[in-house]
Computed example of a mutant assay.
Amino acid sequence: CNTRTIIIETVWLPPSLSHMTRVFVYGTLKKGQPNYFRMFNHNNGKAKFLASALTSEKYPLVIAGKYNIPFLLNIPGEGKRVHGEIYKVDDKMLKFLDDFEGVPKTYQRTMIQLEVEESVSQMEGRETLSPGKITEAFVYTTTTYQPDWPSLPCFESYDANGDHGLKYVTREARD
């Protein structure tokens, strides 16, 4: 009689690492932008940079409002393909980002497809994030905007110090 022994290995992960979510950032949370520091403030949670990417579909990325905030309008097929960064975040950081982005009033978290441009790590779990690969992540888009916003200039990439001349007003400087 043949018997098999099956060994099941259980790996315990602390709650903060047990569930990670991918988020695509395209505005002030990107490297070199005014709110980038918030992605790595451990009081907000954990975030790990995975890759730079480009939206698979076109979206209008506009700078609007009295604080010159970058908004990705949830109008797929219009605008331009948008450059940004993919991060893997824990549940605490995801909650912070939801609060920071004003979900659900100002922004909604939407799953979109992205084309990887450049990856820090070729492997994320079992998935390869190599240039040209299509992957998915959440992005903060808005369906709540002024009627004239879709006619504003669209950008492929946001830079708070770009030649658009629209100075971003940080939260700390707002009235």
Rank of each mutant, 00 (worst) to 15 (best):
R38E: 15
V139A: 13
Q113F: 02
T144W: 10
Q108D: 13
V62Q: 04
N43V: 11
N41K: 14
T141W: 00
R22E: 08
N35I: 02
T170Y: 06
G132F: 06
L114T: 04
A173Q: 08
N35D: 12
G65D: 10
N2I: 11
K133T: 07
G125E: 13
Y26H: 03
A137H: 06
L97F: 08
E78P: 00
T170H: 07
W149H: 05
Y36N: 14
F37Q: 04
T128E: 14
R109V: 00
Y145C: 05
D159N: 14
P131I: 06
F138W: 12
G77E: 09
V11E: 09
H83I: 02
R4E: 07
I75K: 12
K46H: 13
Q108L: 11
I7Y: 03
K95D: 09
G32L: 06
H164L: 04
D175M: 09
T106Y: 13
E172K: 12
G165S: 04
D99N: 14
T141S: 14
C154K: 12
T128W: 08
V11K: 13
L166W: 05
G165N: 12
R126C: 12
T143N: 12
M93W: 05
S121A: 13
K30Q: 12
H42V: 12
I8Y: 05
V89N: 00
L129D: 01
